[in-house]
């Protein structure tokens, strides 16, 4: 699916005049986000890029429902978000697995919750299917604490996809990994995503990651009172391959556009 057809799809998630402020001890408040407007189309992979502390993680945690909204609203499929829920699959920066459970049980925890009426075997099949897709078919019964960081994040990806959410929220999912593992996992993510085409929002500050994965990159201004500074559509064919993407004639234009923005906000 190219970016153009994605843009033609209906809006899945919409942030309307979304604001977030934290009270300061002296009575004033610190406004992180100010009346932010953002629409995400169904089936689209969107990245949000910006400097550290610009409020992009705050934005994502508000969409996830883990952080209360100070002003405006977030609509998912036309309905305002009130608190967290399994219709939004979150991949956290730290893998956030329950370390005492096996990889399979970690994924099952979500699957059991979302498909309570399926048989035990079906649920197990769903969980192990996604673990296989992220390359952990041999590690189903390994305890999460015995897995490497990269493998833990693979489980995190499987867990998020396995609950068949309407939208995936990725909060710098590869931020804690070394660059080799990071590249590997980007490909794992892309492969599963190509199959499932679940609408996704990813927070990142890695320009190459944003271009490689997204249909659209949203650039946020630095806080306080952060807003959308610029939007870049990435018209690269899917399925994508890293080498082809890097050698694409438009690649450096995309890249310099993003870097330009980040250097001048």
């Amino acid at each position: 699916m190219s970016a153009n057809t994605a843009l033609a799809s209906p809006i899945l998630l919409s942030c309307q005049k979304l604001s977030k402020s934290y009270p300061l001890p002296k009575g004033q408040s610190y406004e992180v986000l100010h009346e932010l407007q953002l629409d995400i189309m169904k089936g689209e992979f969107m990245s949000i890029i910006g400097h550290s502390g610009c409020g992009k993680s705050t934005l994502l945690s508000m969409i996830a429902g883990l952080n209360p909204i100070s002003g405006g609203q977030i609509l998912l499929g036309g309905k305002a978000i009130k608190g967290p829920g399994p219709d939004r699959g979150v991949i956290f920066q730290s893998p956030s697995l329950l370390p005492w459970m096996s990889a399979l049980d970690n994924v099952l925890l979500g699957v059991n919750q979302v498909f309570p009426h399926e048989t035990k075997d079906t649920r197990r099949d769903i969980a192990s299917y996604y673990l296989q897709k992220v390359g952990l078919g041999d590690a189903l019964d390994k305890r999460a604490k015995d897995l490497s960081q990269g493998m833990q994040q693979r489980v995190g990806i499987a867990r998020a996809f396995a609950i068949k959410p309407q939208i995936l929220l990725l909060d710098e999912p590869f931020g804690m990994l070394d660059s080799l593992t990071r590249a590997e996992l980007q490909e794992v993510l892309l492969e599963v995503w190509n199959r499932e085409k679940i609408t996704a929002i990813m927070i990142t500050h890695d320009v190459d990651e944003a271009i490689f994965l997204s249909d659209r990159v949203v650039m946020m201004t630095s806080g306080p009172r952060a807003q959308i500074g610029d939007v870049l559509n990435i018209h690269l064919e899917r399925p994508r391959e890293r080498k082809a993407v890097m050698e694409h004639p438009d690649y450096y234009e995309y890249r310099s556009h993003l870097i330009d923005f980040l250097e001048h906000v």
Binding site: A64, G65, L66, P84, G85, P86, S96, L98, W100, Q113
Partner: peptide, 27 residues
């Protein structure tokens, strides 16, 4: 907090949250 976030995102019931997340984490 990460474990609690997971429980929240998955909307685990109070019982599941206690027995599947909080107690094992506290053991």
């Amino acid at each position: 907090k990460d474990y609690l976030n997971v429980a929240q995102v998955l909307q685990l019931s109070a019982r599941q949250r206690t027995f599947k997340v909080i107690l094992p984490a506290t053991l």
